[in-house]
Design a protein around this nucleic acid. Structure first.
Length: 722
DNA sequence: TGTGTCACG
DNA sequence: ACGTACGTGACACAA
């Protein structure tokens, strides 16, 4: 076990100039006159970043205790900060080697490196008696391929039963002789697919096993400790290492510190064993640690139900979604990108012309200088060059509207037409990573790529997403006004409930409310499409208010977005709350609860813990927490309703031969057979609508996109033709 | 690595 | 003294 690190280049080999010789001579003189403690005092009093300062102090201590010493070649020179930092590297390296040696020497008796056929049999025997097995795979690959099962490779995986902890090497540079020619996966597959497992960040391991080896770990996945931890405390780091250190008080090794810039397949097996098997042992321990709390209170029992009845099934469902992926039209994407590139180039030329010089239009610093100093345009947003700020000064100079166009085109290219084709894997599909419990509110997040932020206003990007094949169609179903419906239910706001029950246009309803008697609901409805009418203006404002109120918007905030005075904004808010007194009551109650209990909950018992925010000395932080307290139950309940729907949908998906491909908070994109019947689609729709019983009904809108996302086909025409 | 900007619900 | 709309992820720039 020897890991070698590249040593930095040898200074002596460098050519010495006359100037350097003079400098060295004076340094030698200085060095002769300066004691080490003086040198340290000098160095430590220099202006240094916090991390460097910490490093320097560590070096000073290590030198004092003789752990590290000056390089003989440097002794003649004056001791410098640079030399001290070089010593830190040496120190870190020797500590690392020490640590690795310790790790290997301290490998527990019940840790087994699987290196023979007999070891595999022992593992299988343990599988047969294990109630729960911890599992974790180690991966490697060029260019972040270690995070991508469609590009990288699995070095091996670890398995923990409660008795023993195994590391199974699959693709290490070092192959145990006893495993040459042995079909390890083939032997273990039936057992891996049968045991109940627990993993930390299960989607990662499940995807690797399925994509690389066709091993299905999804169906028997019992628990994901990352999800358990998130439900237990949404406000902290959920890395296994951090959870183990903070909750179980067990120190844990950090891979990057132990193996800087090293791929896992290059790691000697005697080190890989304690490191990898350590992780699965800790995963099991973390599982047990969290589990013991579930019986401690009703709240925690509710959290347990949330995890095992909602979160885990949803997690499993979306692992399949991501593995399946969504087809993407690379060719059309390139064409679109070329078209946009032309537009962009023209805009850049025009803008450069108007600016009189070439600047980087993507640099806020350069743009700020150009607009507010060179062109002396009014700076109304504290130096911001964001869309909002630019729109305000649109009339001050013709270049502004060009800038806005450039921004739009540039964004579309860099974030979508340039980026998305790179995400297409060898199977022609985009495989996003849905993190089913990614947001503190319980909502999903999505990455690589984030399909939740594909432009919705311009159809051309969504149009690049295709149905899986000729026999399948895309279907999208989105909950109509789910957050406002949830708010009406939670707040028990009679007017809002009535409006939803009668199927009224909710924004028009609010418009009538904030017009304070000037217009009735009918007045607004009659003229809401009339360009420039006060009715239309009120409805537009009402839409902003309906959303804003859920976010805990203040008069200042509303005046900003509506570009009205604070007084006018306050009046709108007052009218809103006068019209919907239940909402005011509800929001105040949530704040009160949050301040009293330190948390608020959603319809499913999901919690948002805000006590640390309220402990802050910063009063702004308290107001922020108040807004979160008001917003959380609404956002979280809506999100949880969708998750409950996903659980309820499982038999329906089987029955209708359908798949879920994507999710965007209040919307699900399905892959369905081309010959799916209207009755079957309605079954899916009704399952979503009936996920929970609220005082008002939930409604889902259905859209058929047979070939391309957002390319709508009329329902009636489609079924008549089929 | 942090900041600004902007895409989504 | 000030902040003044919730929740995200991705990119380019600047340090």
């Amino acid at each position: 076990m020897q890991l070698r690190l590249k040593l930095s280049g040898n200074d002596n080999e460098k050519e010495t100039t006359a100037k350097q010789r003079v400098k060295q001579a004076s340094e030698r003189k200085a060095a002769a006159n300066e004691s080490m403690s003086d040198a340290w005092q000098r160095i430590l009093s220099m202006k240094t970043s916090d991390t460097d300062q910490a490093k320097l102090l560590e070096v000073k201590q290590a030198m004092a205790s003789g752990k590290v010493g000056r390089n003989p070649a440097d002794v003649q020179k004056r001791f410098s900060k640079a030399e001290a930092l070089r010593l830190f590297k040496d120190l870190a390296e020797s500590q690392r080697e020490e640590k690795l040696a310790e790790l290997v020497a301290g490998t527990p008796e019940n840790y087994v490196l699987v290196s023979t056929r007999a070891d595999i049999d022992a593992l299988i025997a343990d599988f047969k008696t294990a109630d729960l097995v911890g599992l974790d795979c180690e991966t490697f690959g060029e260019d972040n391929g270690a995070l991508d099962p469609w590009r990288g490779n699995m070095a091996g995986f670890s398995v923990s039963t409660r008795q023993r902890h195994y590391y199974v090497p699959l693709n290490h540079e070092e192959t145990p002789e006893g495993l040459i020619g042995v079909d390890i996966i083939g032997l273990l597959k039936p057992h891996l697919e049968r045991v109940k497992t627990v993993m930390h960040n299960a989607p990662f391991d499940c995807k690797w096993f399925y994509v690389k080896y066709g091993v299905n770990l999804v169906d028997n996945l019992h628990a994901d400790t990352r999800i358990m931890a998130m439900a237990f405390d949404e406000n902290r780091s959920h890395r296994l290492k951090d959870l183990i250190t903070d909750w179980l008080k067990i120190p844990s090794d950090n891979f990057d510190q132990l193996f800087p810039n090293t791929q896992f397949n290059k790691i000697p097996l005697d080190v890989a064993l304690p490191y990898a098997a350590g992780d699965t042992e800790k995963t099991l321990m973390l599982y047990d640690w969290i589990s013991q709390f579930y019986s401690k209170s009703d709240d925690l029992k509710q959290i347990q139900r949330l995890v095992f009845e909602i979160e885990m099934p949803v997690c499993r469902q979306f692992i399949w979604s991501d593995i399946h992926g969504i087809r993407f039209d690379v060719e059309e994407a390139h064409k679109l990108d070329e078209k946009l590139a032309k537009e962009e180039a023209e805009l850049v030329a025009e803008i450069t012309d108007m600016f009189g010089e070439e600047i980087n239009l993507n640099s806020p610093i350069q743009l700020k200088k150009k607009l507010f100093i060179d062109l002396k345009l009014p700076d109304l947003e504290k130096g911001s060059t964001g869309v909002k700020a630019l729109k305000k000064i649109k009339n001050a100079h013709p270049v502004i509207s060009k800038m806005l166009e450039y921004r739009e085109v540039g964004k579309l290219r860099q974030a979508f037409t340039q980026k998305l084709p790179k995400e297409v894997k060898s199977d022609g599909m985009i495989h996003p990573w849905h993190n089913t419990l990614g947001a503190a509110t319980g909502r999903f997040t999505c990455s690589n790529p984030n399909t939740q932020q594909i432009p919705a206003k311009r159809p051309e990007i969504r149009n690049l997403f295709l149905s899986t094949n000729e026999d399948r169609i895309l279907v999208s179903m989105d909950y109509s006004q789910i957050e406002l419906r949830v708010l009406a239910h939670l707040a028990n706001e009679k007017e809002l409930i009535k409006a939803f029950k009668e199927g009224l246009d909710i924004h028009s309803m609010t418009a009538a409310m904030i017009s304070a008697g000037k217009f009735s609901y009918e007045d607004i409805e009659k003229d809401k499409e009339t360009q420039g009418s006060p009715q239309q203006k009120f409805r537009k404002q009402a839409k902003v208010v309906n959303f804003g109120i859920v976010y805990g918007m203040s008069a200042a905030g509303l005046s900003n977005t509506l570009e009205i005075t604070k007084e006018e904004a306050q009046e709108i808010i007052d009218n809103y709350f006068k019209g919907y007194p239940g909402i005011k009551r509800y929001m105040d109650e949530q704040k009160r609860l949050a301040r009293k209990q330190g948390y608020v909950t959603d319809l499913f018992g999901r919690k948002r813990r805000l006590n640390s925010d309220y402990r802050s000395k910063d009063r702004f932080q308290h107001f922020r927490a108040d807004r979160m307290a008001g917003n959380f139950p609404v956002q979280a309940s809506a999100g949880s309703i969708l998750k409950k729907a996903v659980v309820d949908l499982q038999p329906v998906l089987l029955q209708t031969n359908s798949m879920i491909l994507l999710q965007a908070h209040d919307e699900i994109i399905y892959d369905c057979p081309k010959n799916i019947s209207l009755e079957e689609l309605n079954l899916i729709r009704e399952t979503m609508e009936n996920a929970v019983k609220l005082v008002i009904p939930l409604r889902c809108d259905l859209e058929l996109n047979p070939k391309r996302w957002l390319e709508k086909v009329d329902e009636k025409e489609w079924f008549d033709a089929i």
